[in-house]
Every structure is written in structure tokens, then in C-alpha cells.
Amino acid sequence: MPVRRGHVAPQNTFLDTIIRKFEGQSRKFIIANARVENCAVIYCNDGFCELCGYSRAEVMQRPCTCDFLHGPRTQRRAAAQIAQALLGAEERKVEIAFYRKDGSCFLCLVDVVPVKNEDGAVIMFILNFEVVMEKDMVGSPAHDTNHRGPPTSWLAPGRAKTFRLKLPALLALTARESSVRSGGAGGAGAPGAVVVDVDLTPAAPSSESLALDEVTAMDNHVAGLGPAEERRALVGPGSPPRSAPGQLPSPRAHSLNPDASGSSCSLARTRSRESCASVRRASSADDIEAMRAGVLPPPPRHASTGAMHPLRSGLLNSTSDSDLVRYRTISKIPQITLNFVDLKGDPFLASPTSDREIIAPKIKERTHNVTEKVTQVLSLGADVLPEYKLQAPRIHRWTILHYSPFKAVWDWLILLLVIYTAVFTPYSAAFLLKETEEGPPATECGYACQPLAVVDLIVDIMFIVDILINFRTTYVNANEEVVSHPGRIAVHYFKGWFLIDMVAAIPFDLLI
């Protein structure tokens, strides 16, 4: 008679799926529990143990900040960024110097990925580790590398530091407007667009060049630039800015003055950032001319202004700041037409079709709590990747769950009947059967004279019903998954307890 339990259901295979997918890609990662103190490590794979030199037993239950890997060259700011990422709910990448158990130093890129439950609360953290440099290539500990984003994938490793954006290309926007319009339909740009040429040739750093990471940081200074100062900065030398009595002219307006920039070969870094931020506020060169004239017309309804409409929906549905990093990277690809469009465009503009998908598509409701890094690593669709929660398995109709209350009560009843059979069957065979043979035949009273025979008949009927119930009862397979398919249940029961239950259900007393 089957006594099969499996009270692990309803099970959740999400954690096993993450481990299996990460292991298949030869990654070095740990999984931490966000619900406990210090976000203790609950799993670390073999790749991480080989990377740091510690065994799994030495890593388990330690804080996922990996303070046991810190050393003299470990930056405090990087460690603080990892700790801050564990307090938030967004994906974050941090470069930090770690030390192995043998004392060797290596520069590592740590990717902190939160995993949320159905309520939107962070319950786990996945920390992925990628070695960037070994100890002989690690720089000085005073050099802070965590304020910069990861290198873009479309640049060669040897040319990542030679990417320079020439400031004269930004200063000569109005001069290039006529050349853009003359391109017409034969050019790649839309009317009114501004073409910015980027020099990728390796050259020595000069005062006129600005690194790509500095251009990325310009967006942080746009908020500090007032509207009046932006307007004066875009007017140009024809209309000098008016300053109040006793007030000095704005240095932001002076930063885009061609006369002032041409007199000296070098520009201050602050002026460069502010000038680029001011130019980015204009949607095209037409807006710059309109600002000089004193009238700013409404933005025209053409394809170039609607190019950012799908980007707005993608940004609203993005799951991490990696989408913004990807957008900034692609927006700086050289030799393309940049349409400086305000994100607050007309909502009635139709979304044009684009061959290049900048932001990841909208994630469906079932995966809105899973970050983009987890979705990318697992390579699963929205119909396959579940949320991290207890999910009731989908069972067929008329199927009994093996952990249901009805099955528990039924098993206790069958257990009592088995005990009765084990006690009274030998007793009936030894004593009652002998008395029946010696006594007179009682054929007239039937079952009324033999109450134990009636009980034995009921017990046999219950055993037959138990066999039928076992054909529709779920079970737990070797992978700790609840199986509810009727065919698989029948095959599993035939290979197991079916023969024993059938022999126990045969009414031998009635056959004798």
C-alpha cells in the first residue's frame, strides 16, 4: 500500500533555474538572501570558489559584500557603492579590487542584480563577478574607477581610450546646418538635424578633445543650467548677453562664444560640459537660429522629431539603469545623424518603425519583477520565466494532490484497515475457520451469522477504491517536481505499489 509523501509542494524551481543557467555559462556568482541580516550568502558556485580561493563552506553565510576579499588596494568608495546597491532595488555595476585567499590582487567587475517577489519586494541578490585585470595590471588604489561605466561593446579594446569628441564640431553647429540641408533625401539625416562627426583615429590627448566618459557625465550638469543662461549661451556672438549692473557675465554663455574659444586653444572642462549641455537642449539648428531671432517656433511634425517616441515608452518600462547606459552608448555611435529632440514631445505622434532597438522591449506582467540581467542570462521568455513566489501546480481535472487534506485522511483510514487485516486475518484463519468446520452448517442466516465476513468484505472494497484513487494521485519525481499527468501517474504506480495493492485487495476469504 503506498505511503508516498512529498510535502515540499507547491515547489518553486526558480532558484534552481537560475543556478542551472548560470552554471551553463561558466559564470562566477553568488546568491544572497536579502531578508536576513547583512544579506548572507546562501549559494556560491564553483567558479566563484576558484576565483577567490575560498571553499564553499568558508563563503556560505558570510555577508555578500565580500568584505573578506578586501585588501589594501580595495577602494572604500567601491565598497560603499556595493553596500548601497544592496540597500536599493536597481541593478548596478561596480569595479573593485579584490584579494584572493593567497593574497593576489585582481580588479573585478561586480554586477549586483536584485530579484523581487510578486509584491515588488527584493528577496534575493545575485552578484556576478568578472575579472577585468590581474594584480600586475591593477593601478594605484588612489585612482577611482567606479565613477565610470563599463566599456562599450562596439569599441575595440585597444581603442576604448582613444575615443574623442571634438569640441569644434559642437561649436560649428550653425555652420554645418547648410551642408545638412543640402544633403536632402540623399543624406542619412532628416531636415533640421545636426550631424556630429566623431574622430576615432588614435591621437595624443589634446586640450581640444573630450573623453567619452566626460560626455556621459554632461547629463548630470544640465539641471544646474538655468533657462535664461541656456538661451544666452545659444544666442551666440551676435547678441551678447546682458548683465545687470554690478553683475558679471555668465561664464556659461561665454563658453560657447566662437570668438572667445578661437582665441585660446584650450577650454576648461567645466565650460566644455556646460556648452555641450546647452546645445543638447535645442532640438535642431533651426531652433538655434530661432533663439537668435527671439522667436522659438513649435517643433515640426516630421520623422526626426518622432524618433524618440518609442524611446520614451522603453525608458518607462525599463527595469534597470543598464538600459540608460545602453541608450547613452548607442546615442554616441560615430558617423550617424543625431536628432536633438526633447523627450517631452507630442504624445499624438505616431511611433516610426526603427531597425535598431535601443531599449529592451516591454516586459510582460509575469516578468515585471525580474531584472534585465536575470532575463538576459536565463534566456527565457515571458511565458517560461515565473515570478519568485509559491505557485500552485497546474493539475488535470479529477486529480488528487498527494499533500491535500483528503489524501491525508484517506491514508490514515487505509492504515487502520491494514492494521485490522494484519490482526484479524490470522485470527480468523486459526480459530474461526476451525469452529466453522466443526459446527453445523448455517446457510440460512447468511452474513448475519458471520459479522467478521462483512467487515472483511468492506475492507476489500476499500482497498479496491484505494487502488483507483492512487491512479489519480500526484507524486514527486526525482527532481522534486509534482507530477499531475494521468499517464505518468499510471506508469509510476504500475512500477511501484500496484502489484502489492492488488494482492492485498483480493478477497481470499470469499474465494475459499
Results as ranks from 00 to 15, higher is better:
85 A>Q: 01
334 P>S: 09
3 V>M: 12
32 A>Q: 01
89 A>Q: 10
89 A>S: 14
223 A>S: 07
85 A>L: 01
69 L>G: 01
210 L>R: 05
172 A>R: 13
131 V>E: 15
221 H>Q: 13
351 S>D: 06
168 P>T: 06
301 R>D: 11
72 P>Y: 01
359 I>K: 11
198 V>I: 12
47 G>M: 06
182 S>M: 07
140 S>G: 08
354 S>C: 15
261 S>V: 13
38 N>T: 06
249 P>N: 10
262 G>P: 08
228 A>T: 13
211 A>G: 06
257 N>H: 03
278 S>C: 12
88 G>R: 14
295 V>S: 12
179 S>K: 15
331 S>H: 10
378 L>P: 04
222 V>K: 15
98 F>Q: 01
367 T>D: 12
113 V>T: 08
130 E>F: 06
71 G>L: 01
51 L>N: 01
374 V>C: 01
324 L>G: 07
274 E>L: 14
328 R>Q: 11
168 P>Y: 01
59 V>C: 04
290 A>I: 06
314 G>I: 05
209 S>P: 05
64 C>M: 05
187 G>Q: 15
366 R>V: 11
337 T>F: 09
222 V>M: 08
368 H>E: 08
144 D>W: 06
182 S>P: 05
133 M>H: 14
49 C>M: 06
376 Q>R: 05
261 S>I: 09
122 V>S: 11
319 T>E: 14
336 I>F: 14
85 A>E: 01
271 R>S: 10
40 A>D: 10
136 D>A: 06
138 V>M: 03
333 I>T: 14
369 N>D: 07
248 L>Q: 15
369 N>A: 13
202 P>Q: 06
178 S>A: 14
216 T>N: 09
123 I>N: 15
127 L>S: 01
41 V>C: 03
285 A>C: 15
357 E>A: 14
221 H>E: 12
160 A>C: 09
371 T>V: 15
109 L>W: 15
288 I>V: 07
197 D>N: 08
271 R>L: 09
258 P>A: 14
112 V>K: 01
31 I>C: 04
337 T>G: 12
126 I>L: 11
12 N>M: 13
225 L>H: 06
184 G>K: 06
257 N>S: 11
331 S>T: 14
43 Y>C: 01
195 V>P: 06
70 H>I: 05
266 S>L: 11
200 L>W: 06
328 R>A: 11
341 V>G: 15
349 L>G: 12
140 S>T: 08
49 C>W: 01
358 I>K: 06
237 P>C: 10
296 L>W: 14
76 R>T: 08
373 K>M: 12
110 V>F: 01
175 A>E: 15
52 C>L: 06
43 Y>S: 01
29 F>A: 01
349 L>T: 12
138 V>F: 05
35 R>Y: 12
301 R>H: 08
30 I>T: 01
162 T>C: 12
299 P>S: 09
247 Q>H: 06
48 F>L: 01
338 L>E: 12
304 S>L: 12
23 E>P: 01
163 F>C: 15
304 S>W: 14
12 N>V: 12
358 I>F: 15
373 K>C: 07
346 D>F: 14
195 V>F: 03
320 S>P: 08
123 I>K: 10
370 V>A: 05
176 R>Y: 03
166 K>F: 05
80 A>T: 11
107 L>T: 10
325 V>H: 08
90 E>Q: 11
58 E>D: 05
33 N>G: 06
85 A>T: 12
309 H>P: 12
129 F>K: 01
48 F>G: 01
216 T>I: 10
81 Q>K: 11
112 V>S: 01
162 T>V: 07
13 T>E: 09
124 M>F: 13
21 K>N: 08
80 A>W: 10
189 G>I: 15
355 D>P: 12
302 H>E: 08
128 N>Y: 06
257 N>L: 08
32 A>G: 09
352 P>W: 11
214 E>N: 13
91 E>S: 07
298 P>Q: 08
313 S>I: 07
257 N>V: 14
384 V>L: 05
14 F>W: 14
148 R>V: 14
111 D>Y: 06
42 I>N: 01
206 S>N: 09
143 H>F: 05
158 G>H: 09
313 S>N: 10
355 D>S: 10
120 G>C: 07
226 G>Y: 06
269 R>V: 07
162 T>I: 05
209 S>W: 13
125 F>A: 10
29 F>L: 01
368 H>K: 10
319 T>G: 08
85 A>N: 01
144 D>A: 12
185 A>N: 07
155 L>R: 12
139 G>D: 09
179 S>G: 09
106 F>V: 05
272 S>L: 07
130 E>I: 05
295 V>R: 09
65 T>H: 10
261 S>Y: 09
230 E>Q: 10
194 V>Q: 01
49 C>N: 10
304 S>D: 09
242 R>M: 11
61 Q>E: 14
295 V>A: 14
129 F>E: 01
317 N>V: 07
292 R>L: 11
279 V>F: 13
271 R>Y: 05
260 A>V: 12
55 S>C: 09
104 S>T: 14
11 Q>L: 11
277 A>V: 12
213 D>A: 13
6 G>N: 15
162 T>F: 12
6 G>I: 07
75 Q>Y: 04
251 P>R: 11
64 C>A: 15
260 A>F: 08
370 V>R: 09
221 H>F: 15
15 L>I: 15
344 K>I: 04
335 Q>V: 03
105 C>H: 12
107 L>K: 13
156 A>G: 15
201 T>M: 04
84 Q>D: 13
376 Q>F: 02
202 P>W: 01
327 Y>V: 08
353 T>F: 08
39 C>K: 14
314 G>N: 14
116 K>D: 06
322 S>Y: 08
32 A>F: 01
260 A>C: 13
155 L>Y: 06
77 R>I: 15
330 I>N: 14
363 I>L: 07
312 R>A: 13
295 V>P: 09
96 I>L: 04
347 P>L: 05
98 F>V: 01
324 L>Y: 13
52 C>A: 13
385 L>G: 05
93 K>Q: 13
70 H>D: 01
17 T>A: 12
16 D>W: 13
17 T>C: 13
64 C>I: 09
101 K>W: 01
303 A>N: 10
300 P>E: 13
130 E>R: 06
305 T>M: 11
104 S>R: 07
153 S>R: 09
41 V>W: 01
159 R>V: 12
140 S>I: 11
368 H>M: 10
53 G>K: 05
184 G>D: 14
276 C>L: 08
190 A>Q: 15
